[in-house]
């Protein structure tokens, strides 16, 4: 076996090591073989004296640690401070949150309108009672009956609108939570 054959066979078996360790190991054996040849051995004798490439590789692999594979990138948990910094640092994010806020404001107009209808119906009922009482005092019973009807209709509407307003408010509160979560989610992914 020639020196080159020996070194090739050795290099082939050291594949798991780092390039530096492979180069150092090959340098060591090459130097050994060269020194033996300088000492009067033929190339073949010098290679034979170095032992088999298999034994050499086994000894090296047993004693020199194999480098671990590249560690997986560490996933960092997003923290509140980081998100706040992102928001403060980017004017685009300010615009983004302004848009989200506008969307929420528009949506909340619906429950506000329903509540306003409830207040109107209740006010109509109260107004009916007052006007009815005034009509009775004047002795105008026809007017009083009209206001009584108005009051009853107002009370009925107000009761219905109260429940409607409560239900709509609850639904929009849930929707708001969903929207806020949805708006923050892409930032968390970016920050991770």
């Amino acid at each position: 076996m020639t020196k080159a054959d020996f070194l090739n066979a050795l290099a082939h078996r050291l594949g798991a090591l780092s390039e530096i360790d492979i180069a150092r190991s090959l340098d060591y054996y090459e130097e050994m073989i060269d020194d033996r040849m300088d000492d009067g051995m033929t190339e073949e004798e010098a290679v034979a004296a170095a032992g088999s490439p298999e034994d050499a590789a086994r000894e090296i692999l047993l004693n020199i640690p194999i480098p671990p594979p590249d560690p997986a990138p560490v996933k960092r948990k997003p923290d509140g401070g980081r998100i706040l910094l992102l928001i403060l640092a980017s004017p685009l994010l300010i615009v983004y949150f302004a848009l989200v806020l506008c969307l929420l404001a528009v949506l909340w107009c619906v429950p506000i309108v329903v509540w306003a209808l409830f207040v109107s119906a209740a006010a109509a009922a109260v107004g009916g009672i007052i006007a009815g009482a005034a009509s009775i005092a004047e002795g105008n019973l026809l007017h009083a009956a009209f206001y009584l009807g108005l009051t009853l209709a107002g009370i009925g509407l107000a009761v219905l609108l109260y429940f409607a307003s409560a239900a709509v408010t609850k639904a929009f509160a849930r929707l708001t939570v969903l929207i806020v979560k949805g708006a923050v989610a892409p930032l968390r992914r970016k920050g991770a």
Binding site: S25, Y28, Y29, E31, M32, D35, R36, D39, A50, G51, D55, A56, E59, I60, L62, N63, I64
Partner: peptide
């Protein structure tokens, strides 16, 4: 000293192969 010389100097007392010497030097 260098690898082959170390082996030669030790030879009268203890036989050591280059495959044994190398990991010792690295350690």
């Amino acid at each position: 000293s260098w690898g082959y010389q170390i082996i030669k100097d030790m030879k009268p007392y203890v036989e050591i192969s280059e495959s044994t010497l190398y990991p010792i030097l690295r350690r």
